[in-house]
Design a protein around this nucleic acid. Structure first.
Lengths: 256, 256
DNA sequence: CGCAGTTTTGATTTCTGTCAACGTCTGTGG
DNA sequence: CCACAGACGTTGACAGAAATCAAAACTGCG
C-alpha cells in the first residue's frame, strides 16, 4: 500500500468529515466490490491518490430518523458508514415491507446507483453515520474502470441472490423458518464485516423491524423469538444476540 | 429502416432456425432495450448487418418441459421467443416459488446475462420456442456499445422494480390482492407486446402456477378466482381471461 | 376409452393476525 | 433523585386467513 494512504478503519470511528471511498470499500459489503475496483491502482504501490479522489461529507444522525424518503429526487448516492439502517416500501393502510437491512458500507439502494430517484424509505435503526457521494462523479469514476460492466454484473448477481432469498422466505417459508433464516443471514453479514465472532452478534433490531422484514406482525415475532429462547436456540440480552445452537437453528431455517 | 432488413415478426411465427437479435428486441420486453441498443446503427439507414450478426438456433418444445435446471452451467443466454414459461426456485419438501413469468422476448434470468450458472428451474407453460445466444458473443457485442453501462443500469432498475413488487405482494398483501395484482401485471405485459387489447388476454397459466408465484395453495387460488368470477370481476374461458371490471379489479389489488 | 392433469367444493385444522392489558426499560426534566 | 412519558416487550384470549384433507367432476389427449 502507498505511503500517503490514510487509515482505513473498520470500526465505529469512521466519522471524519471527508473520506476516500476505500474507507467504505474496505468494509467488504455488497457494493464494496464496485468501490474497490474503482480504486484499483490508485492506492497501490504507485503514489496514492494521483487521480482525483471522490469525497463526501459524513452525516451522523440518532436512531429512528429518516435518511431518505420516497419521492425524493437526489443527485447523491448514499452509503451507510456506521450503524444499522433499514429501507422499506409502503402500501396504503400503513402496511410496510422492509426490503433490506443496511450495515456499514452498504449503499442505500443498488438501483439508486444510477437512478436519481427512489421509492424507498430509509431510516436509521441505531445511530448512523452516512456519506453522500455525488452520483455523476461516482459514475464517471466507475466508467473509467475497464471492467465496469463486469463489476456491475457481479454486484447485480449478489444483489439478485439476496432478493431471491427474501422472495423464498416470504412466499414459501413459515414464520419460524423466516426468523431463523434472518438471524443466520445477519450473523453472516456481520461476520464478513469483522463484527462479532458469528456466535454472539450485535443485534439492535426491534421486533417490529423483524416483523416488517419478514411479512409478520410484531406480536407473532415475539412469540417465535420467545419459543426460540425457551428451546435454547438463541439468547437475546440487551442489544446482543447469541446463537446457542447453530446446527439446530440452521435446521429450523430449512437450510438443508 | 434499411432495405436489406428482414421481417421482424411480432407473432407466433418467429420460428426460423436463426434470427437477428432485433427479432427479439422488437418484442419490447425487459431486455429488449438492451438488445435494441446493441443493434442501434446496425439496422439504421446504413446497410444492414455490416457488423457480424449475433445468431442463435431456435428450439421448440411442448408445454410442461424443462428448459433449464438448477445446477446447470451454461455458456448460453436463453431468450423466450414464443409462448409462456416460468422460472422458479425450489425448497426442500417440495415447496417451490415461481420467481417470474416469461413471455416472448424475455431472457430466462437477467442475472444469467453475465453469470454462467443458475439456481433457477425454468419450464414451459405452453409450447415454447426459445433461442440460445452465445454468452461471450453477446457480452462482447454489448460492450462495444458506448452506453452499455447505462443500458445495463436501465434494465436493472426495471427488473428491480418488478422484484420489489413481488416482495410487497408476498410480504404484505392478501391472497385476493396478490391475484388481482398478478392479473393486471400480466395484462399490461401482454398489451405492451401487442397481444390482446388489455381487456381480453391469452391466459395459459394453471392455477398451480398462480399459487406457486403468489405463495398460496392451488385450492385457495381456485376459491379466490371463483369469487372474482362470481362477483363479475373477471371471466375465464378455456385459455383466455377477460377483465370485466378493470376499475374494481384495480381497487381489489390495492393499486391506489 | 382411459388416464393424468386439472378444477371445483366442502369440512376441518393450523397458522398468523388482532385486540387488549400489563410490565419493562430508557431518557428527560423537574 | 424521582416521576413521567414513550417506546418496546410479553402474554393470553380470540378471530380470521389460508392450508390441508378428501372426494368428485371435468378436460384434453394418446
Amino acid at each position: 500500500m502507498g505511503p500517503k494512504m490514510h487509515r482505513h478503519s473498520l470500526g465505529r470511528d469512521d466519522t471524519s468529515p471527508t473520506s476516500c471511498v476505500v474507507c467504505i470499500a474496505n468494509k467488504l459489503n455488497l457494493c464494496g466490490d464496485i468501490l474497490k475496483k474503482m480504486q484499483a491502482g490508485r492506492h497501490g504501490d504507485a503514489p496514492a491518490l494521483t487521480a482525483p479522489a471522490i469525497t463526501a461529507r459524513a452525516h451522523t444522525i440518532p436512531a429512528r430518523r429518516i435518511i431518505s424518503r420516497p419521492p425524493e429526487w437526489s443527485e447523491f448516492i448514499t452509503f451507510i458508514c456506521v450503524g444499522w439502517a433499514v429501507s422499506s416500501l409502503a402500501l396504503p393502510n400503513g402496511r410496510r415491507q422492509i426490503v433490506s437491512f443496511l450495515l456499514s458500507g452498504d449503499v442505500i439502494s443498488v438501483a439508486n446507483l444510477f437512478e436519481p430517484h427512489t421509492d424507498r424509505l430509509t431510516e436509521s435503526v441505531t445511530e448512523v453515520t452516512y456519506r453522500n457521494f455525488n452520483r455523476s462523479e461516482f459514475v464517471t469514476a466507475w466508467q473509467r474502470n475497464s471492467d465496469a460492466l463486469k463489476t456491475f454484473a457481479g454486484t447485480w448477481v449478489k444483489y439478485d441472490l439476496e432478493k431471491m432469498q427474501l422472495i423464498l422466505d416470504l412466499g414459501r417459508r413459515t414464520a419460524e423458518e423466516r426468523i431463523a433464516h434472518l438471524i443466520l443471514v445477519l450473523a453472516d453479514r456481520l461476520a464478513i464485516r469483522g463484527f462479532g465472532s458469528g456466535a454472539v452478534i450485535e443485534f439492535p433490531l426491534r421486533q417490529h423491524h423483524i416483523a416488517d422484514a419478514m411479512g409478520l406482525t410484531p406480536v407473532h415475532v415475539n412469540k417465535v423469538l420467545s419459543a426460540f429462547r425457551r428451546s435454547g436456540l438463541i439468547d437475546i440480552e440487551g442489544r446482543s444476540l447469541a446463537i446457542l445452537d447453530p446446527i439446530r437453528l440452521r435446521r429450523v431455517a430449512t437450510l438443508q
